[in-house]
Design a protein around this nucleic acid. Sequence first.
DNA 1: TAAAATCGATTACAGTTGTAAACTATAAAT
DNA 2: ATTTATAGTTTACAACTGTAATCGATTTTA
Lengths: 152, 152
Amino acid sequence: MPEEKPEITDSEWEVMRVVWTLKEVTSKEISSVLQEKKEWKPATTKTFIGRLVKKGMLTTEKIGNRFIYRAGVSEEDSLKTLKSGLFTHICSRAVGKTIADLIEEATLSHDDISLLEAALKKKKQDAVDDIACNCVPGQCTCKKDHGMNCQH
Amino acid sequence: MPEEKPEITDSEWEVMRVVWTLKEVTSKEISSVLQEKKEWKPATTKTFIGRLVKKGMLTTEKIGNRFIYRAGVSEEDSLKTLKSGLFTHICSRAVGKTIADLIEEATLSHDDISLLEAALKKKKQDAVDDIACNCVPGQCTCKKDHGMNCQH
DNA sequence: TAAAATCGATTACAGTTGTAAACTATAAAT
DNA sequence: ATTTATAGTTTACAACTGTAATCGATTTTA
């Protein structure tokens, strides 16, 4: 069964990235990275660490009176949540177009292009003829237009 | 010069989708769509409409004592903001991989695949050899690993 | 024309988020 | 053994969000 994945705010994300990168960290290490990047006071970082611990996003191991922090949720899982959030506001039929837009607007390397070509080739196997619109009437023109043109 | 694009919350997004779809609407029309979808009381919808008007996301035309609402910002612009938000939390070198993940996890039609193939082909023109990591040390392994492997 | 319905505006209120100081307990330094 | 620094915890507080009731003006209806 898929675990509940806690929502993560922008600021909390900054903290998690440090932990995902360094694997085992003290609050001081996190703090110094983010003092650099975000100009946060140590107290600010501590607040976010505390909230992340409470959410189970960070695990702690007590050494004396300090803690070592580790990620309680993988970066991949969090990225998955982030990615799926992208599509909560668009019609399922517009997903392809949206990804195409992302490609257009991105800076990509030759390696990236190969990676994407491979992903596409694999995807071709289970491509469908028509995708059902998942919108309610009034939030998308699919249904009104007899399901023929949702790609606005 | 690019205009300031107001941030839009999830709930506000629901309202905007109705306006983008129906183009010219009364609060009652918006309200009835979202009563259906979100089970919002009309008062709730009105709150969001008010906030959107204040932000300039909706324009109003007064007819007697009611209003006709229209979008003050295009869906495309808002989508652009949404899409770029996806990449604020990942290394610029991981963008390609992230898009590949999106493709893997999406349901796509044959038409979508063609669209994506076309986008990729066009992109191949200005693909670069190497993308610079845009992360601070401690939030990404690029720099530590001499810039060779960021695709975690 | 008086009553009822409706629309937009104002107010409410709890939970979340960003930002941080103050407090407390322990560890390090003198 | 004190003083000092430091780590984690508690408290603070304003802005933003979700959710909605109430109020005041007006329009429709009886």
